Structures are given as structure tokens and as C-alpha cells.
Simulated scan of single mutants.
Amino acid sequence: MKLIVGLGNPGDEYKNTKHNVGFWVIDKIAQELKLNLDKQKFNGIFAKADDYILAKPLTYMNNSGLFVQKIAHFFKISNDDILIIYDDMDFSIGQAAIKNNGSAAGHNGMKDIIEQLGTEQIKRLKIGISRPLNKENKNYVLTPFNNEEQKIIEKVVETAADAAIQFLSNDIRIIVERFNAKNKKRKDSFSS
């Protein structure tokens, strides 16, 4: 059983914000696989297939870890079979990468997941949202993309969803190679 979790904040006021790109990828995967996130448990929503789960915590971003820990424990999913999808200010808009492990690098949602699971050995797909010019991070992540950025991010979300779907039936190393190579080309083509 594999678990793919997209991070974001619940509620309509956050729906279109940069911090919610993890949710967008989960929604795209669910659309592609014709699934509905219609189950609710552990303060989150999810869709369960025979051998995988797609999920979104309904907590705020910095409290995502308990949901991930509880759903993984309940369905007996090992940390090695979890993929977390979230926004990353260290990558430009249009960039993304899959990593096998690492620190939270300042992302509060990932920090909480690492604390709750007790390891940094967690696969993650990071989607670039860039850094604000004025360094006011909290407000920046809670704003929408502009029209030009939105067009770019929609393509990245499609690519990220495809990579996550491939993760369901492939070794992560194959996905990392394919996705990171493909995304490098995308980054070059979207560089501004």
C-alpha cells in the first residue's frame, strides 16, 4: 500500500494560494484516476484504492504530521511507501524535484511530518513557488499566483501528478530520474 499526501490549508480562502499546490496535485491525480476524496478520518480526507491512498490533511499546514502519521499507522503503510507533495520557496516557479529524503528546509508542514514520523527518510515532491522580494513569507505563501505564473504552475502540476501516478507502480529511483530530467527541460523553457 502506498500513500500520497498533498499539503495545503483547508477552506475556500486558501484554495487558490501558493501554499496549496500540494492539494492541486492530489486533485489532479484523483481526476486522472477517476477517484473521489470522499472518505474522512484523522482530520483529513482521502480516496482509497486497492493498493494506494490519495490524501489531504484538513488541518492547517503546520499540523499536517499527525494526520500523515495516523493514516499511515492505521493502514500499515511503511515510511518508504509515503510520498508528500508540497510547495517550496527555494525553487523558482516552474521548477520541481523529487527527493528521497532530507530536512524540512523551513517548510512547517514537512517539519511536522518529520517530527511525527520520527525520520527524514520521507519521499517528497517539491513544487517551486519562488521567494517573495520583500521576504514576508507568511503572507506571500497565502497569495495566489499571477496569471503568467498560474499558466506555468498548471503545467508543473500536470507533470507532478503524472510522476506521482508513476510512483504508485514503480520504484522511486525510476521516477526521480524521469521527473527530474523532464523538469530540468521544463525549468529551462520557463526561465524568465
Rank of each mutant, 00 (worst) to 15 (best):
K48S: 03
Q95P: 06
N36H: 13
N137C: 07
G22I: 08
S192I: 12
A96W: 08
S92K: 15
N183L: 10
F23Y: 15
F67Q: 01
I29K: 05
G109A: 03
A97R: 11
V156M: 14
K76A: 04
Q166W: 01
T119L: 02
D81N: 15
K185T: 05
D162I: 07
G65V: 07
D112K: 12
A104R: 15
I45S: 04
D27P: 03
S64F: 09
S191K: 13
V5C: 01
I45F: 09
I85Y: 01
E13K: 15
N9M: 05
L125D: 00
T159V: 12
I85Q: 01
S78E: 10
L33M: 13
L7P: 11
S169I: 03
N183E: 12
Q95T: 09
E13N: 09
G6L: 07
E115N: 15
M61F: 12
N43I: 05
A181S: 15
K28C: 04
L3G: 01
G11N: 10
K135D: 11
D90C: 00
N183T: 10
N147F: 14
K126I: 03
P10E: 05
S92P: 03
N101L: 01
I85P: 01
I175Y: 03
K123S: 10
K185D: 06
D162H: 07
S92W: 15
I172S: 14
P10H: 09
E13M: 08
S169L: 04
P132H: 09
V156Y: 15
P132W: 12
A30C: 03
I174Y: 12
I84R: 10
A164M: 03
K48G: 02
L7V: 12
Y140L: 14
K184E: 11
I113H: 04
M1G: 01
A72V: 00
G128R: 15
N183Y: 06
W24E: 07
K185A: 04
A96E: 06
V25E: 06
G106V: 07
I152Y: 13
Q116W: 07
N180M: 03
